[in-house]
Amino acid sequence: MADAPVLRLDGVSKSFGGLDVIRNLSFEVARGQRTALIGPNGAGKSTVFNLVSGVYPVTAGRIRVNGQDITDVPSRLRMSRGVSRSFQNIRLVPHLSVLENVLIGQTPRISRLAEVLYPVRLVRNSHWKREAMGALERAGLAELAGSQVDDLPYGVQKQIEVARALLGGADVLLLDEPAAGLNPEETEELRERLRNIADQGTTLVVVEHDMQFVGALCEHVVVLDFGEKIAEGTPAEVRREPRVIEAYLGSDAE
């Protein structure tokens, strides 16, 4: 399966009632690639993430991860099939510490009863905790391990979400507006961090409005408008595409 794309959508459609939110969408993400999914508000970007992570079922089409069809796999099992994600609004567990939130990220790899009943919050230096601490260290958050997450700044919480999402052992990480609400310094840090993550072999798919961020991070861009793919290519290529310019700025003819 080494040559199969990490993520592949074939003719995916989604309607809510009579409203077609995604129409016949197909694209591929190659292993190790940094891909952006962009488009005006309401283009259906977050819906694509929700379809891939299984929050909603598709109306038509197939979704494959590492060549395996996951279209009918329940959302609960998709992370162990290789897809992990973060959320547009931060979705950390507010009443757990930072470290415990990152421990939640290991859950997709837990299957045996002995692991479920392992007192992970009691044993001080377990391999689970060491792994989670390692993830926090790489994110530069080690000293916050014991803090309660809802006391922390927004940018830090976003970083914790990424660290948590990575520990599930997924091949492809879907990030929904990772740079939203971050100051320029934090954005810069995040971009460096995501580059490192991609260099270590995790494929990234990013929904993002900040085009500068997209241009600096991603090598491949898929542009959506009203649920349809209107362009695909490198950031420079899609920026020249007349339909993209039209979607973002409106057409001259009006």
Partner: peptide, 28 residues
């Protein structure tokens, strides 16, 4: 004891956010 296990940890997650617990593989 159970509250200190991964079972207890996941239980807090289920209490706080069912959707996220589900995506992280917890059988809510």
């Amino acid at each position: 004891f159970l509250e200190r296990t991964r079972f207890g940890l996941n239980m807090v997650a289920v209490h706080d956010d069912e959707a996220v617990s589900d995506l992280f593989g917890v059988n809510v």
